[in-house]
Nucleic acid binder design. Structure first.
Lengths: 156, 156
DNA sequence: GCGGCGTAGTTGCGTGGGCAACGGGTAATT
DNA sequence: AATTACCCGTTGCCCACGCAACTACGCCGC
């Protein structure tokens, strides 16, 4: 007897919810990155690293930790930290506990730039994204992401 | 007299809604792209182009149209179409109306590959994203994206 | 202590993508 | 018709990133 065919196409609503996510993300990130780069010569990816460092104990974090927190490969993080170190926004510090390891530490210059860049960025996020939603809707978003994230990475 | 200071930091909820969007998008796209590439040797960006062509009249679209629809620069689209043409999934066709222009046309081979790839991709989108939401929630998403998109690209 | 194994970070190499400049075609102004 | 301005798609150049290979170190069991 016939097993019901797996439905293939998406409904209008499904498509709108999914493709909308793609478009919104791409557009927002592009705009915010351009804005930040124009105002402070700081790409969004660099900003994310500095923000992560700032909120860390002693303003320092391991490389792998950083890579995970901004979803970048280890080698990608090596080079991003290279660039930031070249600009004096952070320095590498040897890890005494683990000879293989290495810390990235936010410098004063990095902290200062971050202080200037933060209002720009947060204003951008607010004007382009947050402003459209109520507190309640934002909570729905947050809960939605919590449901999706665990199963997003692995292949099920 | 003192104008109230612009609030700088985001609330917990705002942060969760915003950063969640970033993480979810990145994780989902990474996973779906890998899945599609593994199963059909077709990156997600190529899939998007083929899908766009399939739904077009005569299965053809102008280059700039394609670029806009997948949020890629013109030069990026030139090269993506180069690759797809090299694999025989589409062909370029001269535009008779406009001597500058150029169409990309889906080939039979492209259509066949798309037919095989579509279930893979849609299953992935369902399992990783859609499955977590009710019809009602999906409608909320769609409406959310409609509100955000218009103001996302331009500066304010 | 010493060989094997896992792990942290770096490096070579290949790839995808953006920006600016260009070549050729169209549209507007005269 | 000629000049000018604009627009389409392509190309050169560069950069950011991932993968795989490598080095150097920690952690075992023996």
């Amino acid at each position: 007897m016939a097993v019901p065919e797996t439905r293939v196409d998406l409904t209008e609503t499904e498509l709108a919810a999914w493709r909308g996510l793609l478009r919104v993300h791409t557009a927002l990130v592009k705009a915010l990155d351009a804005e930040l780069a124009a105002a402070h010569d700081l790409p969004l990816s660099s900003y994310e690293v500095l923000i992560t460092l700032e909120s860390a104990p002693d303003r320092k974090r391991r490389m792998a930790e950083l890579a995970d927190s901004v979803l970048l490969s280890r080698s990608g993080m090596t080079r991003l930290v290279d660039r930031l170190e070249r600009e004096g926004l952070l320095v590498r510090d040897t890890c005494t506990d683990d000879g293989r390891g290495c810390f990235a530490v936010l410098t004063e210059k990095g902290a200062e730039l971050l202080e200037r860049a933060r209002p720009t960025h947060l204003e951008g996020v607010r004007e382009r994204f947050l402003v459209h939603f109520s507190e309640d809707e934002l909570r729905r978003f947050a809960s939605a992401w919590e449901r999706v994230l665990p199963g997003a990475a692995s292949a099920d």
